[in-house]
């Protein structure tokens, strides 16, 4: 389990780096559009759709990492009144439900990507499947990370939650 956690930590790190690179590229694209239009009177038609696809990537990658690092907003008030063991069971139910949703993202996201395969995106000239790949990629990571949470809990290792300041120490 420790070595799996070690490997997944690196996967999460890589995903977060890619997402950060996506945000920076998006900044570059939109700045380029403003400069081109205002200074050179020449609009870039590809900057908007390209930035939207980049945004899709970094949202779903970032959201997947958020499951591992526990930074998704949740509502823990009811749980305060429960004993620790009950809490752990309910956390596992949550993680199972998130796993299920992640599987849905992969399966139905692929279905959407396949059905858009032949569609050519305007201004970019690439396949419409690219629109849906972020969901599939993010979904795969979500499944991985939420299953890791279940496994960690079973092995008695800590899992992170929203509002907790101490990060995972593995």
């Amino acid at each position: 389990m420790k070595s799996v956690a070690w490997a997944l930590r690196h996967v999460a790190r890589l995903a977060l780096w890619l997402a950060a690179a996506g945000l920076i590229m998006m900044t570059v694209f939109i700045t380029a559009q403003v400069v081109a239009r205002y200074i050179f009177n020449d609009s870039l038609v590809w900057s908007e759709p390209a930035a939207v696809i980049l945004m899709g990537w970094f949202i779903f990658l970032g959201a997947a990492v958020g499951i591992r690092e526990g930074y998704h907003l949740s509502f823990d008030v009811m749980l305060y009144f429960l004993p620790q063991s009950a809490k752990l069971w309910l956390y596992s139910v949550s993680d199972l439900v998130v796993t299920g949703f992640g599987v849905g993202m992969v399966w139905f996201g692929s279905q959407l990507a396949l059905s858009a395969w032949d569609v050519k995106l305007p201004s970019l000239g690439i396949s419409g499947a690219f629109d849906f790949l972020p969901i599939v990629g993010g979904g795969v990571l979500m499944v991985l990370f939420s299953m890791e949470r279940l496994a960690r809990r079973a092995a008695g290792m800590p899992t992170a939650r929203f509002g907790e300041t101490d990060p995972l120490e593995d």
Binding site: S74, F75, S94, V98, G104
Partner: peptide, 27 residues
Amino acid sequence: LLIGTPVAFCLGVASFATVLYLGLPPV
């Protein structure tokens, strides 16, 4: 929401469940 599932997934999974219940394509 009450069992502490992240809010995003409360919304997403509730929609997923309802679509399954209605027999609509979950896509």
